[in-house]
């Protein structure tokens, strides 16, 4: 199946010459959820804005389901929904009217059942006659999503949907993305929260300094980094690993005050329970137990650092 979104060597230099995208290429398959992970200023918003028609590309090409975003912009854009990073809504307008407006703007005839369905799924139906200014921040973000979905797009861009929202709302947002997945909407979201990419994406792309540094299936990425460490801090210092624990992948740390156990979080069983019971069987007393994980964050930091060293 050809990719639904195909970005080829996309460059964007802003007026003044700053190059915010330095040749981005990326293919995105229909139905997948991809997270673009990158620090502030990486070019995430610029990438989305360029694809959606808010800024013009300097060079390169983008096609949506085979439609070029410049020469065939009507078809291309009617397939795309965009939820911008910053909340931008008409304060005095009513919720349902702004959603109807978006649908009409994208060339779709009025269809109240579709609008109702979208509003219900985003828990906005009860607020449909409210003015936007009466809504909370989280609700406004939902209205933005409702507007983006109003014309039933096949590709949805979510630009930092959970930046600055509280934990509960973030979970809500993840649920919404799960629903989109079930509906087969291809979703591209940007974030600088690594947990977010881990929690909802099928694939993760790391972007920094206007370049995509890595794109990989989240699962294989996680497998690479799925190693976790368990630090068993002891009340007494050890000279060596006790005989009875030799079968485990255990080493001494912290001058013998800690037993360090490495395990695979994705394995059937981690062996932690057995290890701990063997530890106490060996007569050792536990002071504390700590787990540590090499996460997306570690990879991410090292990638971004390497990139910075490479360019400076």
């Amino acid at each position: 199946m050809p990719p639904i979104l195909s970005i080829k060597d996309l460059r964007k230099a802003y007026d003044g010459g700053f190059e915010a995208l330095k040749g981005v290429s990326l293919d995105i398959n229909e139905g997948e959820i991809i997270a673009l992970l990158g620090p502030n200023g990486a070019g995430k918003t610029t990438l989305i804005s360029t694809i959606c028609g808010i800024t013009r590309p300097t060079s390169g090409s983008v096609t949506v389901a085979g439609h070029d975003i410049l020469t065939d912009y009507r078809q291309a854009r009617s397939l795309i929904g965009l939820v911008p990073q910053d909340i931008a809504l008409e304060p005095f307008e009513r919720v349902i009217n702004t959603v109807r407006f978006s649908r009409g703007l994208f060339g779709k005839g009025r269809k109240d059942t579709v609008v109702e369905d979208i509003l219900r799924r985003l828990s906005l139906w009860d607020k449909r006659d409210n003015q936007i200014r009466e809504l909370s921040g989280g609700m406004k973000r939902r209205v933005l999503i409702a507007k983006a979905l109003a014309h039933e797009p096949r590709v949805l861009f979510l630009d930092e949907p959970t930046a600055g929202v509280d934990v509960e709302l973030r979970k809500d947002m993840w649920d919404i993305v799960d629903q989109l997945r079930a509906d087969g909407v291809t979703t591209i979201l940007t974030t600088h929260y690594i947990e977010e990419a881990e929690a909802i994406a099928d694939r993760v792309g790391v972007i920094s300094g206007g370049e995509i540094l890595l794109v990989e299936d989240k699962d294989s990425l996680m497998a690479r980094m799925g190693k976790k460490q368990l630090d068993v801090q002891l009340t007494a210092q050890l000279d060596e690993v006790p005989e009875s624990l030799a079968a485990y992948d255990v080493s001494l740390g912290d001058d013998g005050w800690t037993l360090v156990y490495s395990y695979d979080t994705r394995a059937e069983r981690t062996g932690i329970t057995k290890l701990l019971s063997d530890v106490s069987a060996a007569g050792l007393q536990l002071r504390d137990v700590v787990t540590r994980q090499s996460s997306l964050e570690d990879i991410f930091v090292s990638l971004v650092q390497k990139d910075r060293e490479g360019t400076s």
């Binding site: 965009l82 978006s102 703007l105 994208f106």
Partner: peptide
């Protein structure tokens, strides 16, 4: 001013 122009610019018009 309020930023809603993003929608006009991204619409198939």
């Amino acid at each position: 001013f309020i930023g809603t122009i993003y929608e006009l610019l991204s619409a198939p018009i």
